[in-house]
Amino acid sequence: MTSKEVVRLEDVSAHYDGVPVLEGVNLSIYQDDFLGIIGPNGGGKTTLLKVILGLVEPGRGRVSVFGDTPEKGRKYIGYVSQYSLFDRDFPASVWDVVMMGRLGKTGPFRKYSKQDSDATLRALEAMEILDHRDQQIGKLSGGQQQRAFIARALVTEPQLLLLDEPTASVDTPLQTDFYELLERLKQRMAIVLVSHDISTISIYVDKIACLNRELYYHSSKELAAEDLEAAYRCPVEMIAHGVPHRVLKEH
């Protein structure tokens, strides 16, 4: 393996108010990975991303991000969170919001530079929402907002992109576009995509992990039926890879 390791989790456990959310998680992410993490709701997917970002302190275990602590290494990460809980009336345009991704590069007491606005322009163009640059962020449709938030993550010039349920607010026809976009982005950065929906992501990602408190991962796209069953706690019907897997509920 010549590819550089960008994130390494060793025996990581995390709790929320005494309830274990992650247990003994080991995970290595490499610089050219396009990794999908699936698992049921409440399985700890968001917590796992927040541990990598240093937003949640693990109770046990070691986390290394770009060879450093998460707090220092996260400047190389672009993050798109699951819910954008912002106020729909918030007085900021799409441009203002995407520009926020440049804050780490500009530093305090200074105005945004030409470089910052160039990067913002490119990201808006890449996400095909340049026409909406002056619109209020809350007035965009769900899919357009999602694009704006990905643009905001891209202007940080990340080497790793973390996406939490990115298609939750996107209509199905738009989702195909969305994955084609990720195909392009993965040439430039590692991507980790988290979703509770196996069928859509498994077509596109190169590797799949399964998370339900414990992580089942073999650094490949193969998932053993036992793993899925262990993770989802229900019988799973496996179909040859390349074709969407399906999870069947027991009646």
Binding site: L53, L55, R74, I77, S81, M100, L103, G104, P108
Partner: peptide, 22 residues
């Protein structure tokens, strides 16, 4: 005036502001 863009990001999305290093 000096911290306008920082306060804007803080008001809009604290989590993202943390991740970009504010």
């Amino acid at each position: 005036v000096l911290l306008y863009k920082e306060f804007l990001a803080l008001s809009f999305d604290e989590e993202f502001a943390t991740v970009v290093g504010l």
